[in-house]
């Protein structure tokens, strides 16, 4: 995966990712139209499919709304790289198959507009602009299984078949 980087700060809460005034639907494409609206009202029109979000600490704090990772995924975000993720957002992202990566170094050094290339299986983040390479915190084996299955629902379906 290759794409351009959009940078956001610490404590990007789920109200910033998708304000509650749009939660009278759970349709992914409708949610995507308002993604990050209260953090940057123009982001939706600027971003391109396949872009990345790089953020600081505690990304996705606040509400449990799965609409937040759904909106980001439907907006075409390839992956989110952050120093850390809030707990429920972390679960939700893995459960619905939105790639997330934890790397303090990458979050510190990658700049807005940089082109990066990500290898999810290896946890590798390559900054094409600066030539730097970073490695994300590896996932525990159980979560790797969830990710490999494409999320919790597929994982349950698979384990039911067994």
């Amino acid at each position: 995966m290759q794409g351009k980087v959009w940078k956001f700060g610490d404590n990007i809460d789920t109200d910033l990712i998708i304000p509650a005034r749009y939660l009278n639907t759970s349709d992914p494409s409708e949610l995507a139209e308002h993604c990050m609206e209260d953090a940057d009202p123009n982001w939706v029109s600027k971003k391109e499919k396949g872009d990345f979000i790089v953020a600081g600490e505690n990304f996705g704090c606040g509400s449990s709304r799965e609409h937040a990772p759904i909106a980001l995924k439907a907006a075409g975000v390839s992956a989110i790289i952050a120093k850390s993720f809030a707990r429920i957002f972390y679960r939700n992202a893995i459960n619905i198959g939105l790639p997330i990566m934890e790397s303090e170094e990458a979050a510190n050094e990658i700049k807005e507009g940089d082109k990066i290339e990500v290898d999810l299986a290896k946890g590798e983040i390559k900054n094409v602009s600066s030539k730097m390479i970073y490695y994300a915190q590896p996932f525990p084996p159980f979560m790797q299984k969830l990710i490999k299955a494409g999320g919790l629902i597929n994982y349950i379906k698979k384990s039911k078949r067994r």
């Binding site: 799965e66 429920i88 679960r91």
Partner: peptide
């Protein structure tokens, strides 16, 4: 509970935590 404030019930000596909708679906099943 698929609501972040599900942690409220800890006041009663229960373990209680917020999750997302997919976790809720999986638990219902």
């Amino acid at each position: 509970g698929a609501d972040s404030h599900t942690c409220t019930y800890g006041a009663l000596g229960a373990f209680s935590t917020g999750v997302g909708s997919t976790d809720m679906a999986a638990a219902m099943a």
